[in-house]
Amino acid sequence: MRPVIIAACLLLLAPITDSWWASGSAVILDPRMVCKKNRRPRGRLAQICRNETGLLREISRGVTLGATECAHQFRHRRWNCTTQRRSMRKILMRDTRETGFVNAITAAGVTYAITRACTAGALLECSCEKGAPKSRRGKALTVPTPPVTTQSDRWQWGGCSDNVRFGLQKSREFMDSRYRKRSDIKTLIKLHNHNAGRLAIKSNMRIECKCHGLSGSCTLRTCWWRMPAFREVGDRLRDKFEGAAKVISNNDGDNFMPESTNIKQPGKKDIVYSEQSPDFCVPNAKTGSLGTEGRQCNVSSAGTEGCDQLCCRRGFTQTTVREPENCNCHFKWCCEVICETCFVKREIQTCL
């Protein structure tokens, strides 16, 4: 009976997740592959795979959300979080800072999607939170107090707070449970970066309020807890990527420490890694680098998208293209705006 249930879960998930995690590697998170490879999963992972198809669907959406945000954050860099499966598989089999970012943004995406589904009432297992938000152990969390403009202002918890507690819990159960009994450096780093991704949401929850009172007054406010926009989560994790710390295993083998004594011990919100990244300038099947030949660059930029940086000082070609745009627009009574089509020239730079 169990194989039939698992097969049904996989069929339900099939149309949703076709991301670059779905390459069949054990290090790549894809709910279909996780449940399929773990023929006899145990504990909470077993329950999720066999019985919670709705939750698996949201996990799939979270994986896709993380993949989309990763591609946005790195769209102007040598490594652009490619959707090419073989390349991403090689990236995730290593332990570079790029691997750390992918693991963090995936954990954040899964947490975000599950929490959002709870608030929307899309999952039978949870709902939005009523009253003051609580921790995993049921204790009320300390959150910022809404600003008070006058002494008569009053506020109370109400509305429908995002149930981030449930999202965090399910993200841990699905993504971390298979690694809990391991203590090698790669596993420790993976679990740390998973948690860093979740904290990018949990640590940046905000309060939203609605005023109540006669004639637009605000004698009473109802307030609830909201997650930040996922783009903000991606921005914060990209900043952590920039300041990621290289670590090594400590003497007891149960934890890690900075590679250099000049670097402070990374905190829970920081991204860590143990392997140096390739430069991603030229194709390399071993590292997963696709190179930057043929990528568009910006000759006027001194940033990561600049031709000097993106093309790895190999040079670039420049071509002129003509693009249509509206021009000579005028208003015709009534009520229409009529425009002509003009062609403007634009220079495009492409890496050699």
Rank of each mutant, 00 (worst) to 15 (best):
K130G: 14
W157L: 05
P146N: 05
P146A: 10
P146I: 09
C160A: 04
G159V: 01
G159K: 01
G158Y: 03
P133W: 03
C118E: 06
C160P: 00
A132S: 14
A140N: 12
K190N: 11
A132C: 12
R182N: 05
V164L: 14
R116P: 03
S177C: 01
L191V: 04
T145K: 14
C118V: 09
V148K: 15
R154Y: 09
T187Q: 02
P146Q: 07
C118T: 08
C160K: 01
T111C: 12
L188D: 04
D153C: 10
K134C: 07
P133M: 07
I189V: 07
R116S: 13
R136N: 10
A113V: 10
P146D: 10
D176K: 06
F166R: 10
P144S: 06
R178K: 11
T111W: 01
F174K: 05
T150F: 11
G121Y: 07
N163K: 05
R137S: 15
V110Q: 00
D184I: 00
I114L: 12
Y179M: 07
Q169L: 13
W157K: 05
T145E: 14
K181V: 09
P133T: 06
M175G: 01
A113W: 04
P146Y: 06
V164I: 15
T149F: 15
K190H: 05
G131K: 08
R154S: 15
S171C: 13
V148G: 08
A122S: 11
G121I: 08
I114H: 08
A120V: 05
T187N: 00
T149Y: 12
G158W: 02
K186V: 03
P133G: 04
Q169R: 13
R172P: 00
L124Q: 15
G167D: 03
G121S: 07
G109C: 10
A140P: 14
C126S: 02
K170S: 07
W155E: 11
M175L: 15
L124W: 08
F174P: 01
F166L: 06
S171L: 10
V164T: 08
C128K: 03
G158T: 09
F166V: 11
A140E: 14
A107L: 06
E173D: 15
A132G: 10
Y179R: 10
D162L: 03
F166H: 10
